[in-house]
Design a protein around this nucleic acid. Structure first.
Lengths: 331, 331
DNA sequence: CTGAAAGCGCTAACAC
DNA sequence: GTGTTAGCGCTTTCAG
């Protein structure tokens, strides 16, 4: 089957290709009967405009690049859903780029993004140097970053302040006398853990103490569970242990049970990133409800605004809040 | 900043644009010193070839469309990872399209895919009519479907035969005397549940019985958990209950515990789609390890073969196997 | 209201 | 080896 182009339609409808172009793009100036004539020709031939050619002619692709860490986790998934939904509303297509921990060179992705001439990019990524961002801005491409407070002329950001979140929580704990707080390392999210440590350190510092509860998982241990198993049975050293992801929290739960430590009576447990699995565990795990879907949705919305010259973007830096969801693992 | 094109590079390097094109595409015929000259010009100007223009000229975009259900679940995520990794190897870009249950009209997506002139598409989707596929094939675009046994001239498929899986399992159960098997409905995956029911029915039929253990979740119940709660406490009616997703299995686990039913002693539990959460539950939930990552990776590999004229595609229909992972919820 | 023609950036014969 | 030129399919002035 021969590729059918605007030219074929023009011939079929006995008009010029300019006219066909007009009806495709819903121009008002076309007379009704010729519009119908063209429409019929389009139907008959099964013509679909070539977005690539349009992109070339218009200097815009109506597609946005998405850069996300490997799409494995529920949390990321929800963010993507938010991005996708809003993109759909504004008729943007999405190019998916994923970063694997360290392995995927950001540079390749950036190179790719630039070549593909997308209209904008949304990046959800902890590790991401200023340099790399500049690379993108140098090519004038609008960016929205999820999870970082960066922002300037062509960069917007949408995030939750985890440092503040954990600071607030720790402060409250300390004031209630729960001074022994532990934070479990998460190898998959070093940048996030760094933020959490900072928040904890700040809270401790303000109370004249030093934070010493960072639980680094020894290299030889393959999983948090394996580590915690040997760690937790040593005895109860902490009032509350904080994990980043649900699976780590569940590991704590399981190891505590095995060590006959009662949660929350003898030790409390909090998971930063709440998830449905937290609610399914027994005891149910307390956590912070992060507006993941909204992070994605608002990021995309912000980008569409930045892309649309008519829209005045008031604030390129959007901080979203979280809600602590107390369940059974905390008192 | 003015958009810099191949023409600018040509002028800068004092050669013709054809030569620049040649070095960009690694043509062998360029003399070393002019290649260097051009490279320098490219560096200096920060030139990046416009993939859109290349796409137009070459009649191919080196991008593949992905159609997946909303990217929420771990299972889907792994498939995507597989797809992404292989796509990366073969330098294909990915356009992401997601289908929301029923809401997203497949037609819009198809329209979009056709317009974007992708080289191929990978569809992971239960509900997908033959009609819709034909729509795509009509435009000569190669497709690989994940999860369905469809296949013809331009369509390949990679799947796990769940009907057979559950048939095998049920048959074994029946032979061991566990004749009361239940299957919990999954509203989010009706097509999959249909397959599972068929497998169960077949197993029962072959043993001269009829399958009656389909547990439909009443419309007024908001979650599997809510339903199971009222259902399970009625007493033990089944020898083994089968769920599709991990969260449903966990719901069974929790409700059984609340009803003081011992798993696996009084009732066994199997989750079709195994996940890490199954291993974190207590008792740990048995399940079938589905090669999700491989499904994605092989689907993409198959597509790349179909796209490459040199490659002879031997079999467009790939059935992957599963492994039953017995844990503590089955005897 | 419609058509003619230039151009978007790049590739690929075809010359030289 | 390198340059010239004709497209790839579509949009958009500019005329008429």
């Amino acid at each position: 089957m021969k590729r059918i182009t605007i030219y074929d339609v023009a011939k079929e409808a006995d008009v010029s290709l300019a006219t066909v172009s007009r009806v495709i793009n819903g121009s008002e100036v076309v007379r009704e009967d010729t519009r119908v004539k063209v429409q019929e020709a389009i139907e008959k031939l099964g013509y679909k405009p070539n977005a690539i050619a349009q992109g070339l002619a218009l200097q815009k692709t109506t597609t946005i690049a998405l850069v996300v860490p490997e799409a494995s986790y529920f949390y990321t998934g929800q963010i993507i859903n938010g991005l996708v939904d809003v993109a759909k509303i504004f008729k943007y297509n999405l190019m998916l780029h994923t970063t694997t921990e360290g392995i995927t060179e950001m540079n390749d992705i950036i190179e790719n993004i630039i070549k593909s001439r997308v209209d904008g990019v949304v990046i959800y990524n902890d590790k991401l140097t200023k340099d790399e961002l500049n690379q993108l801005t140098r090519y004038q491409i609008p960016i929205v970053v999820i999870g970082n407070k960066i922002s300037d002329e062509t960069i917007g950001s949408v995030y939750v302040d985890f440092e503040q979140l954990i600071y607030n929580y720790a402060t409250e704990c300390i004031q209630k006398g729960k001074k022994r707080i532990a934070l479990v390392e998460d190898r998959k999210n070093p940048a996030m853990i760094k933020q959490l440590r900072e928040g904890l350190s700040r809270a401790y510092a303000e109370n004249g103490m030093e934070f010493t509860g960072y639980l680094e998982i020894p290299k030889e241990k393959k999983s948090s569970y394996e580590f915690l198993k040997s760690f937790i049975k040593k005895g109860i050293e902490y009032d509350v242990v904080i994990t980043y992801r649900d699976s780590q929290a569940m590991a704590v739960l399981n190891t505590a049970k095995e060590a006959d430590i009662s949660i929350p009576d003898e030790m409390e447990l909090v998971c930063v990133l709440d998830s449905k699995y937290n609610a399914m565990a027994r005891p149910q795990i307390s956590g912070f409800k992060i507006p993941d879907y909204d992070l994605g949705a608002l990021a995309m919305r912000l980008l569409t605004k930045m892309l649309n010259e008519d829209d005045e973007v008031i604030d390129k830096k959007m901080e979203l809040s979280y809600i602590f969801t107390p369940r059974k693992s905390t008192k």
